[in-house]
Write a protein that binds this DNA or RNA. Structure first.
Lengths: 197, 197
DNA sequence: TTATTTATGATAGTATTACTATTATTATTA
DNA sequence: TAATAATAATAGTAATACTATCATAAATAA
């Protein structure tokens, strides 16, 4: 695969659209690199600023805080994954094969793209596995949810759920199953990567 | 059920055994209350100290940091749960019924105990659902794991896995399945509690 | 072209956090 | 009674997570 796609994430996540400027794109790119390298807890806006030879104040002009920045990255990922699901399901007629293709996508790393300006897919995969629960396992989740910032994840779940239902209309919990597939995939990938025994 | 049990967790988790003194027990009890009330991110040793009318320095004498304190609480929970599994499986002969009893335990709140000095089971359940992944989804997980501080969780998984294997010796991934049952249960309970749509 | 808006850089400052260290006091045990 | 240990009281530090101000450079509009 070789094409350039960009995804518009909910504008409430950022203060200023990072896709609207070179420095904005650099903030996101370097944030991804740093979260991969140091882990989310050890990333600060100051470190990101130093990496792009800019200042903390500039990073704060794009994102309210670290949590929103992670949310932005994850939303980008979920949008991208939903796009890939649509793409891969083209011309797959059997519902069973569709489900198989989806599980295949979810349980493997995203294909690396050749675009120079694209985010590092390996790092993104890693971040989704190890950091994604941190955006919702917080006391403020209900409040944060009001801005619909989890919509891309929900949309993906809904899409998978609809295919589960199409495959077996009798199955009662397609939405639970779709989020279970996604979360279990992350969890098992985490165990394999970091926690061998 | 009405009895008092206490669990010894790996001594590498604490600097000084919190069960060895009244103030130690108060630290853990108040930490549980505060994590439930404020969420792990908003709890500080200073806040715990104020709640027990003591000082930060005293809390630091028991636990190296907040992460270890959470680990202590979760280990206590996993030990308790494994004890309950053993307890509930007494006299259940069929492997199928044993598995059912385990799923039942994992997917429901722990029974509240009447002991005055016991930790609040409702709060504990809540903390396990929302905070437990934070002890291992950190960059330092491999390093932390060297102290065997995740052993109670692993032991529980191993126990469930052995019952899965006993029920169906042909099943290839009993360990994956047992951690999947536990994690999925938390995840789905979280969605029900905090994230209704 | 000039004026105006906007983005960024440079710098400063603040409250809070996550600790470490020191000394005095109190309680326990030898 | 002396020695030991635990805690309280207090101070201090580096880092974090911001907010604020002002100057300058770049883009755009009149």
């Amino acid at each position: 695969m070789d094409f350039q796609v960009s995804f518009k994430v909910n504008h409430k996540i950022y203060l200023r659209d990072p896709e609207s400027s070179e420095i904005g794109k650099q903030i996101v790119k370097n944030a991804i690199d740093l979260i991969y390298e140091l882990g989310f807890e050890h990333v600060t806006f100051k470190k990101i600023a130093i990496h792009i030879s800019s200042t903390e104040a500039t990073v704060y002009r794009y994102f309210e805080n670290k949590h929103r920045l992670l949310l932005y990255i994850l939303n980008w990922y979920w949008c991208y994954l939903e796009f890939l699901v649509d793409y891969k399901l083209q011309n797959v007629l059997s519902k069973r094969d569709q489900l198989k293709a989806i599980v295949d996508l979810i349980t493997h790393e995203l294909p690396e793209s050749t675009g120079q300006f694209d985010y590092n897919k390996k790092f993104l995969n890693h971040i989704v596995i190890t950091e994604s629960s941190k955006v919702y396992l917080v006391k403020e989740v209900a409040e944060i949810n009001k801005d619909e910032v989890f919509k891309p994840y929900k949309d993906l779940c809904a899409k998978i759920a609809s295919i589960i239902s199409a495959y077996n209309p009798q199955y009662k919990y397609p939405r639970s199953l779709s989020s279970t597939i996604i979360e279990t995939s992350h969890n098992q990938q985490f165990l394999v990567l970091f926690y061998p025994n």
